[in-house]
Amino acid sequence: MPLSPMTYPDGHVGWRAHDHATVRAVLADSRFSIRPDLMHNPFVPGSPGDAPPSPPGAFADHDPPGHTRYRAKLTGQFTVRRMRVLAERLEAITASHLDSFEAQGSPADLVEHFAVPVPGLMICELLGVPYERRAEFQQDAMFLTGFSGEETEAMFAAFERLQQFMLEMVAAKRAHPTDDVLGDLVSAEAESSEGALTDDEMATMGMMLLGGGLDTTTNMLSLGTLELMRSPARVDAMLANPDAAVEELLRYISLTPATARTALADVEIEGTLVREGDTVFVELGSANHDPARYADPDVLDLARGAAGHLAFGHGIHQCIGQHLARIELKIAFPGLFTRFPKLRLAVPESELPRRASLVIGGLERLPVAWD
Rank of each mutant, 00 (worst) to 15 (best):
A175F: 04
T22I: 04
A141V: 04
T198D: 05
A172V: 09
A203W: 03
I123T: 00
S148H: 15
G335W: 05
L126N: 03
G285I: 02
V116G: 07
P117N: 05
L345S: 07
S54A: 15
Q164K: 13
T68E: 08
G120P: 02
E194V: 15
A237S: 06
L38W: 08
P341C: 07
M142N: 10
Q322D: 01
V13R: 15
R275C: 06
T262A: 06
D215K: 01
L352T: 03
D184Q: 08
H97W: 14
A51K: 15
A190Y: 13
D296Q: 14
L162N: 02
L273V: 15
H12C: 12
V299R: 14
A292G: 15
F337V: 06
S4A: 15
M205G: 03
H20E: 05
V235G: 06
S30K: 11
T225M: 10
G76Q: 09
L310K: 00
L363T: 00
P291R: 10
G76K: 12
L110K: 04
L3Y: 07
R82H: 06
P341G: 07
F78P: 01
F337P: 00
F281K: 10
S187Y: 08
T338F: 08
R261Y: 08
S357C: 08
A237C: 01
Q164I: 11
L228E: 01
P48C: 05
T79K: 09
R89D: 06
T7A: 09
M202V: 09
L223H: 00
D109W: 07
L264A: 08
P53S: 12
A244V: 07
R81A: 12
S33I: 10
L329E: 03
T204E: 06
V299W: 06
G362K: 02
H289E: 02
L38G: 05
P56Y: 06
P9Q: 07
F159T: 05
R16G: 01
G49M: 12
A28K: 13
V359A: 09
W370V: 08
K73Q: 15
A244Q: 08
L182N: 00
L250H: 02
V85R: 10
Y8H: 12
R234D: 04
H176Q: 15
L358K: 04
A237I: 04
S193V: 09
S357R: 06
H97N: 11
A190T: 15
R89N: 08
A92K: 08
R275V: 05
A263S: 11
M207A: 05
E276D: 11
S30V: 10
I253F: 00
R16Q: 10
Q77T: 14
R31I: 11
P257C: 07
S148K: 14
F137Q: 04
H40M: 08
M39L: 06
V280A: 02
T259N: 04
Y70P: 04
E88D: 14
M155V: 14
P45G: 12
A95T: 15
V23D: 00
E88P: 04
P130C: 08
V274Y: 03
S54N: 14
L27G: 04
R344H: 15
T204N: 12
S187N: 09
S47E: 13
P130D: 13
A332S: 03
A58C: 13
G49C: 11
D298M: 07
D290L: 02
E351V: 12
P65G: 10
V274S: 02
M142K: 08
L210F: 01
